[in-house]
Nucleic acid binder design. Structure first.
Lengths: 191, 191
DNA sequence: GGCAGACGATAACATTTGTTATCAAATGAA
DNA sequence: TTCATTTGATAACAAATGTTATCGTCTGCC
């Protein structure tokens, strides 16, 4: 799991082994809740295999805001960073193999690697990239119809369309399950 | 303009004066374009007085994605950071007093203050905050109706509703100008 | 193998939202 | 002032989207 990242981190063998020693491997079934709404997020998860969604309850409706797949890290980011009660649930979609790390251990690591300019800059890049991704997603809500948003999803994040149950995708796109079904059917019959 | 921030920056008088010396004051009319679509953003603007919107053209429609007011800094952030051609226009809404700084000078400053842990952490906090703001905005598109989104805007960002022409607000909320007008009228007559 | 629950398609109908057009008020420039 | 432009309200109609209900398929589990 970690060897693929080894060459990206200019660290001594000792440090490298210390850091990966903080991670714990778990295997969980589909639909396992990793973080409850209201809980304070203290673990960051790395996905070796499987997929995860972040969702919240709004007036009894299950609304999905994010999907994560292999090699991505997942947490309720606001809760994890600011130690607020999480506004969202974190839940597996497929049976998954995960590696988690305690926030306090991660904080130690980050504090140490911040001194390495190369890693510090990469960290900041990641932060910007995350912001850009959200901006782009927001732009799609003011410029595209739901059908166009679904089309973009197929093109830009095909793994979501392929692996995630459709009713989760519907709320992610901001439409009802019925309407997403209509969009799909229209796409099929037009071509 | 800068004195109000003085106590937030643990810098020597010399450094402080050097840094603020990089800024240039300008006064511009309403509807002045500060950055064209396709241009590479090389200036960051600080607003002393006035307000600014960021917008883009989509199939002939003028779509506004952000508003900025006094004491906020503005740029086409992706273009500014990554040196890409800007996907957006930056334009004043009101007659404004602005202070701008060259990207290269700002980069120098940032490179220097990164060494100060206190400022470095504040910089990272700002980045996270920006991401959280976009997340929140995105959440509102999957959980709220346009009417609820307008209501939240009144409560959370009243200066937008008070100072920005309504047709700019419409696209920001993802609705047509006609529909925003309907939402307002309904809010009035219900209460 | 059979059963319950999850998932998705579809229909019918209600509601929301967009589009186009028109008008009125406010604003700014000559 | 006067005139053109910008801004916003409203009506009428069209299109998109939500809601509720029903049905069929699939899947996991006993």
């Amino acid at each position: 799991m970690f060897n693929q990242f080894r060459n990206k981190f200019p660290l001594s063998e000792e440090k490298w082994n210390e850091y990966i020693g903080y991670f714990n491997r778990i295997e969980v079934a589909a639909k396992t809740t990793l973080l409850e709404e209201g809980e304070i997020s203290k673990k960051l998860y790395l996905i070796e295999k499987g997929c995860i969604r972040v969702w919240f309850n709004h007036n009894g409706k299950d609304l999905t805001s994010q999907f994560f797949f292999e090699n991505q890290s997942v947490a309720s980011i606001e809760s994890f960073i600011k130690k607020f009660p999480s506004p969202v649930f974190v839940e597996t979609i497929e049976p998954s193999i995960l590696w988690w790390i305690h926030k306090k251990d991660l904080d130690t690591i980050i504090e140490e690697i911040k001194e390495i300019p190369e890693l510090r800059d990469r960290l900041i890049d990641k932060l910007f990239q995350r912001t850009f991704d959200y901006m782009k997603h927001f732009f799609s809500f003011i410029k595209d119809s739901p059908a166009q948003r679904y089309q973009s999803l197929i093109e830009e994040k095909p793994e979501i369309v392929q692996r995630v149950p459709q009713h989760y995708i519907a709320s992610y796109l901001g439409v009802s399950t019925v309407h997403l079904s209509r969009i799909k059917s229209k796409l099929l019959h037009e071509k």
